[in-house]
Amino acid sequence: MGAANKWSDTAMLVIDMQKEFVDPAMSSLAFLAGGEAILPAVTQAVELARERGIFVVWVVREHDPDGRDVELFRRRFYSGGKGPAMKGSQGAEMADGLVIKEEDYKLVKTRFSSFFATNLDSVLKTSGIKNLVVVGVQTPNCVRQTVFDAVALDYEKVTVIVDATAAASPEIQMANVRDMKNIGVETPTLEDWSRQA
């Protein structure tokens, strides 16, 4: 069985790897230092996914300038046409070095989970996807909620690449990784995942 056949029922979700969240030059309240640190690993994971013929899905936040589509607790950060990851803003762009290609899919979400009030499950299922590999930020929020929903939606194998995901601290990262392992999620390093034939 060729590599493309083995991986044809797998999708990689690249979550919130946008300048707003991972680029310190943005001086954003939403910046996560761990996100900047994992950028090389995420870039490498995406390249490997493409080599394997894995369907790459870029999950991003893009909000209205008035904040009416963000969670209630975040709306205070939106006023006067300013706020994190606004549609068309520099902060909503992908981090340097990450490029959405024509064969990829871009999904806009407005909540933590990539599945909540989006067409992601439909896109994946109609594409024959049974397994997911997740990279991006941040682990206790968008990564974790997406992963828990993927398990609830009965994806056969859910994998989180631990060094291509990040949280505010190593302790928070590892506590959330442990919780995801406890529900059956695989948690390899990028090196271990790259060795899987």
Rank of each mutant, 00 (worst) to 15 (best):
A3V: 12
A4G: 04
K6I: 07
W7F: 15
S8A: 15
S8V: 06
D9K: 15
T10W: 01
T10I: 00
T10C: 04
I15G: 02
D16A: 11
K19W: 00
E20Y: 04
F21R: 00
V22C: 11
L29G: 01
L29C: 01
A30R: 05
A33R: 15
A33E: 15
L39Q: 08
T43F: 05
T43M: 10
Q44F: 06
Q44K: 13
E47P: 02
A49T: 11
G53L: 00
V57F: 09
V59E: 08
V60E: 01
H63F: 13
D66I: 03
R68E: 08
R68L: 09
V70M: 13
L72R: 14
F73H: 12
R76N: 09
R76T: 10
F77I: 00
F77Y: 11
Y78L: 08
K87S: 04
K87W: 04
M94A: 06
A95Y: 01
A95D: 03
D96Y: 03
G97M: 04
K101C: 14
K106E: 04
K109L: 05
T110L: 06
R111S: 11
F112D: 02
F112L: 12
S113M: 08
F116T: 09
N119L: 14
N119S: 15
V123F: 14
L124M: 05
L124V: 08
T126E: 12
T126Q: 15
T126W: 12
G128W: 13
K130A: 05
L132F: 02
G136C: 10
F148G: 10
A152V: 02
D154Y: 01
Y155F: 14
V160N: 09
D163E: 06
A164G: 03
T165A: 08
A166N: 04
A167Q: 03
A167V: 11
A168T: 15
S169F: 12
I172R: 08
I172G: 03
D179V: 02
D179A: 15
D179Q: 15
M180A: 07
K181T: 02
K181L: 08
I183Q: 10
E186G: 05
E186Y: 12
P188T: 00
T189K: 02
L190W: 02
W193I: 00
R195C: 06
A197C: 11
